[in-house]
Design a protein around this nucleic acid. Sequence first.
DNA 1: CATGAAATGATAGACGTCTATCATTTTTCG
DNA 2: CGAAAAATGATAGACGTCTATCATTTCATG
Lengths: 346, 346
Amino acid sequence: MASQTKSPTLSDVAQRAGVSYATADRVVNARGHVAEKSARKVTAAVAELGYVRNVAAANLSQQREYRFVFVFPDGANAFFARMRDILAARQPGLSRARTRIEVAQVPAFEPEALAAHLERVAQSRPDGVAVVGIDSAAIAAPLAALRGSGVPVVSLVSDLPETGRNAYIGIDNLMAGRMAARLLGLSHGGRAGKALVVLGALNARDHRDRLAGFHAVLRRDFGAVAVLPEIEGRDRAEVVEARVSEALARDPDISAIYCIGGGRRGLRRALERHGRPVFCIVHDLLDHTRAGLEEGLFDVVLDQRPEEEIDAALSLMRALGDRVPLPPRAPLLPMIFLRDNLPPQP
Amino acid sequence: MASQTKSPTLSDVAQRAGVSYATADRVVNARGHVAEKSARKVTAAVAELGYVRNVAAANLSQQREYRFVFVFPDGANAFFARMRDILAARQPGLSRARTRIEVAQVPAFEPEALAAHLERVAQSRPDGVAVVGIDSAAIAAPLAALRGSGVPVVSLVSDLPETGRNAYIGIDNLMAGRMAARLLGLSHGGRAGKALVVLGALNARDHRDRLAGFHAVLRRDFGAVAVLPEIEGRDRAEVVEARVSEALARDPDISAIYCIGGGRRGLRRALERHGRPVFCIVHDLLDHTRAGLEEGLFDVVLDQRPEEEIDAALSLMRALGDRVPLPPRAPLLPMIFLRDNLPPQP
DNA sequence: CATGAAATGATAGACGTCTATCATTTTTCG
DNA sequence: CGAAAAATGATAGACGTCTATCATTTCATG
């Protein structure tokens, strides 16, 4: 049993394969100009010795730097503001790892604007792109262009069509919708009720999925609770406030609200004004949703833990850039926040 | 405004400070033999230029390798088996990062055994130790010895006294206990009941904390639910099974069980035999607790997400070894699993 | 001022990979 | 067979840090 002291270098591989360092290098870095026979010898030697290229040395020699672009919907949406804060907090560690982050903002729910921006991003040849997906044929082309030129693309928070990205990083939104339904149903304890759903827009896949999961469980297990036609709030507080107030005024039987997207500040104001208690589930633990929970206006906050989404996106893009096998990641699960398990305020 | 193209090297620092590379090196690596005046000049230059040492280059030049030791309680406890599985799954990435992991097992809940083992671990001069804490004066000395020789120590899952470790990585067990009480209380919907608590041992701080949080919320918010004297099950299935069966037989009013520690297999068997439904909260999502949830024997599983604990422990020990500022980490929060939000089975 | 001690400077080599260049060998095929 | 094309080999230098050694300068002290 040979002592496992040190891992083999590319020189060791070359020697074992009976070729020169230069040829071994041509093979492992896919530079071409190598006879198939030599290539086979080298790959065999790599396998036999268990060679793994030393990424640190490689990046050192190349003075490799990374530039990752995050494309977020703009507007006042507090969730994406939080995402930006998290990125800012990661800054020191990132610059130590020679990684630069750029955050781009494009109008929310507008596929053409996103498509146009993705094209511009592709021009700048970044080392990775994380984008909050929209379901639209308009963005297929720019995504294909990006990926065609070897830029890793990950969809964040809301998925893109599978062909458009290397990976999706975010919670299972169907599951989130099911959880909301279960909690909302339980809160009714068998009594009848009417549930109002507020979402941003139906071309956001995360919103659509949450809605679908919500409907599925409510219909199956809580038939006594009816679901009203959903309100599209475009993630804008004024819109949400106006339309929810109107709905509450019109239908006094509304017993619960599931707020799938943004505009939660508006929801909070509408509830405050309304007076009568309504069981309310919202997404994303943020300053004002936390406050709503503590005040009793909101009953449940489902959180997707954006820190972990950011970290997952970063480490994934890094791994893709380093040409290293992807690290294992437990699936990201929505977190249930009630009054009792709020994390300490930072 | 100078172009920020590349980050300064130690040579740049030396030049700026007006000293030789050797002196700058002596300062930043704390080798001594430097006049205070020179040291000041160097630290000033470091600050002015924003120098951060290139860890990749440093580790490359030193052929630095890491050896981390995890000390787990032994026995059949499925949770720690899961921890070991997770470590095994991290193996490829770890060996790429030149990191070796050793897992040691010591008898559960026995401070002397743990102390003895920690001494042996200290002998082997590892680069970091992660240990599941026990509250006992017996382990203070070996911990002090470890930390005295510069070995980072992190407490995992259950905390040690603050002086004994560099950091605690695990959930807030008081919070976990409070969450259990809230869910258990809600399940009673105002009706009276009796809650049975099963724990491993009271010298495990995590168990003690969960118990305390549980009592606090139940007493405060759910006075109708009485708490019976707790059972010590030593995390052993036979013990738990026997004592829970006995308790259920003796007191027909038991309406809920909170199982704080291990031996959950025994609990499951006892419940199966018992027949009458009892609201049951257990910790840790594992094969059999998941099964219990799906079968309806368990109602809630509180999970501490061991993957994240392992990852946090590894990255923390790494950062300490690399002498790099600690990366920000969101606090680890207990996860509530119900039937609807089970992650896909791998 | 002389002497020994302490501080400082200078520098070479190693770590593993990548880039680049040029020389040499082998293969292909008209 | 001969010429062009393709493949291969050899090797030097760079990346930033650490280790080590030795020479030189500065300082404290009697």
